[in-house]
Write a protein that binds this DNA or RNA. Structure first.
Lengths: 107, 107
DNA sequence: ATTTAATATTGCAATATTACGATAAAGATT
DNA sequence: AATCTTTATCGTAATATTGCAATATTAAAT
């Protein structure tokens, strides 16, 4: 095996898991945190910031983009990346809702 | 390769990524959501609920536990699992903080 | 038109993850 | 004590992820 059985879970569960999974790597956390700091930047900036090779950064950016966490707009030669606020809000809502539901419960 | 270069990121980044990563799988999302619904339960209940074999569920529970997202207390023969509120709050805070920082920015 | 700059893609090796059957471990039940 | 119940662990196959060198792509600059 090795393949996640996505067909056995709801679309919503798969969708939120995909989004969360994209953030479940320190390099991608670091990219997001760097983007928070600088607002927008190009791939090369991140390559200079993090100890990973350019293709690796490019791959991580692709994953973040596929998950909807960042947006990239072509700016002549380079691509200007930034965080998609809506995605972060979605995650915030998800965990906020869980917290709310847990308040009433005890364990 | 295939091994994450954890040594190149901060402890905080690695720690939050580990926690988030643990939730980045639909089965574990489903387990957490089931736990929210029933408050506490034993492994067997989850095995009955989800379309995965017992060893697979046990493995997912282990990962959630290692990440600090759930707690398990021995209850005679079985183990009573429940969500660790503090962990969820930590995640909520993390995304809440990001949202806050993003409010001031535009992209 | 050539060269330079910035990203993406390809191909590949190393490692990690997912899933499950078989089995072990440990307390409960008879 | 023997059996049942519940969960964990081991072993293993299939697949996915991570990381990078080499190369391709695309636009800018000369």
């Amino acid at each position: 095996m090795g393949a996640t059985k996505t067909d056995h879970f709801t679309d919503r569960q798969n969708s939120i898991a995909t989004m969360i999974k994209a953030l479940g790597h320190p390099a991608r956390i670091a990219i997001i945190e760097y983007l928070i700091k600088v607002d927008t930047c190009i791939c090369g900036d991140i390559v200079n910031e993090l100890p990973l090779a350019q293709p690796t950064i490019s791959q991580h950016l692709k994953e973040l983009k596929n998950a909807g966490l960042i947006k990239g707009s072509i700016e002549g030669n380079s691509i200007c990346y930034c965080i998609d606020k809506k995605a972060i809000e979605k995650l915030q809502d998800y965990f906020g809702n869980i917290s709310l539901k847990l308040e009433k419960k005890n364990c």
